[in-house]
Amino acid sequence: MDYFHSVTATSTVAIIAFPLLFLFSFLWISRGNTNSKKTAPEAGGAWPIIGHLRLLGGPQPPHISLANMADKYGRIFTIKLGVQRALVVSNWEVAKECLTINDKAFATRPNLACAELMGYHKAMIGFAPYGPHWRQMRKFTTIELLSNHRLNLLKHVRESEVKASLQQL
């Protein structure tokens, strides 16, 4: 019984501490990002802590909400996801330019404390800054993990996981 109570207490502390840690890191990072570079226009209607998340979780699907915002603010604008700013590009020519000509600028990640603490010192591909390690991880991921051959080989694993999840529901 004593072990059970300690595990329960630990999980309760983790459930409370991690959202607070993320909120603190987002607020700390957003406060330090006051630079004078020219940026894309920001969509209006953001709330202080959650930003535009309420608009994306409304009665309309997120892609419809983003399309309506693109009609109002133009083909490139920013929104706030929480306290972090995100660039929204709704034109294929601009998206191609972002992913080919300016790919180094868009490959960098924000410097977050959670990426450092929980992401093995930014060694995971989702948290790694642009550089030799990130390029090697991207190459490995596209060739070894996401190739058509590998996806077909592991198709039965995905199907069995979906079946098991549906049975548990």
Score class of each variant (00 low, 15 high):
Lys96His: 10
Ile15Asn: 02
Ala123Tyr: 06
Gly58His: 01
Thr100Lys: 13
Ala43Trp: 00
Thr142His: 14
Lys122Pro: 00
Lys38Val: 09
Ile143Lys: 15
Phe24Asn: 06
Ser160Phe: 04
Asp2Ala: 11
Leu153Asp: 08
Lys72Met: 03
Lys38Thr: 04
Gly82Ile: 06
Leu154Gln: 02
Glu159Ile: 05
Ala86His: 09
Ser147Phe: 01
Arg109Glu: 03
Gln84Leu: 14
Ser147Lys: 04
Leu21Ala: 15
Leu56Cys: 04
Ser160Met: 10
Gly57Met: 12
Ile15Met: 13
Thr12Gly: 12
Phe140Gly: 08
Ala107Cys: 15
Val88Gly: 02
Gly58Trp: 01
Gly51Pro: 08
Ala113Asn: 02
Gln136Lys: 15
Pro41Thr: 01
Glu159Asp: 13
Glu161Ser: 09
Asn148Ile: 06
Asp71Ala: 15
Leu81Cys: 07
Thr142Gly: 08
Cys98Met: 14
Pro129Ser: 08
Ala86Pro: 00
Leu112Tyr: 11
Pro59Tyr: 04
Cys98Val: 15
Leu23Val: 12
Lys96Gln: 12
Leu154Ala: 00
Ala86Gly: 00
Trp134Gly: 00
Ile76Arg: 13
Val157Asn: 03
Gly126Cys: 09
Val89Thr: 04
Leu169Met: 14
Gln168Ser: 13
Gly82Cys: 06
Asn102His: 14
His133Cys: 01
Ile16Arg: 03
Thr12Met: 12
Pro59Gln: 11
Thr78Gln: 14
Gly51Cys: 09
Val88Glu: 01
Val157Ser: 02
Lys80Glu: 01
Trp134Val: 01
Ile29Leu: 15
Val13Ile: 14
Lys72Thr: 12
Arg138Tyr: 03
Leu145His: 05
Ile64Asn: 03
Leu117Thr: 06
Ala105Ile: 13
Leu27Asn: 08
Leu87Asn: 04
Ala164Val: 04
Glu116Ser: 10
Met69Pro: 05
Ala70Asp: 01
Asn152Ala: 13
Thr8Cys: 14
Tyr120Phe: 15
Asn33Glu: 12
Phe106Gly: 08
His133Trp: 14
Ile76Phe: 09
Leu56Phe: 05
Thr8Glu: 07
Ala40Gln: 02
Ser25Val: 05
Thr12Glu: 03
Gly45Phe: 04
Phe77Arg: 08
Leu145Gly: 00
Asn111Trp: 07
Leu99Ile: 07
Glu97Asn: 13
Ala107Trp: 04
Phe22Asp: 01
Phe106Lys: 05
Asp103Cys: 09
Val88Gln: 04
Ser160Pro: 00
Pro59Val: 10
Ala95Ser: 11
Leu117Cys: 02
Phe140Ile: 07
Phe4Gln: 12
Gly131Asp: 02
Leu27Tyr: 09
Asn35Glu: 02
Thr78Ser: 15
Gly57Lys: 07
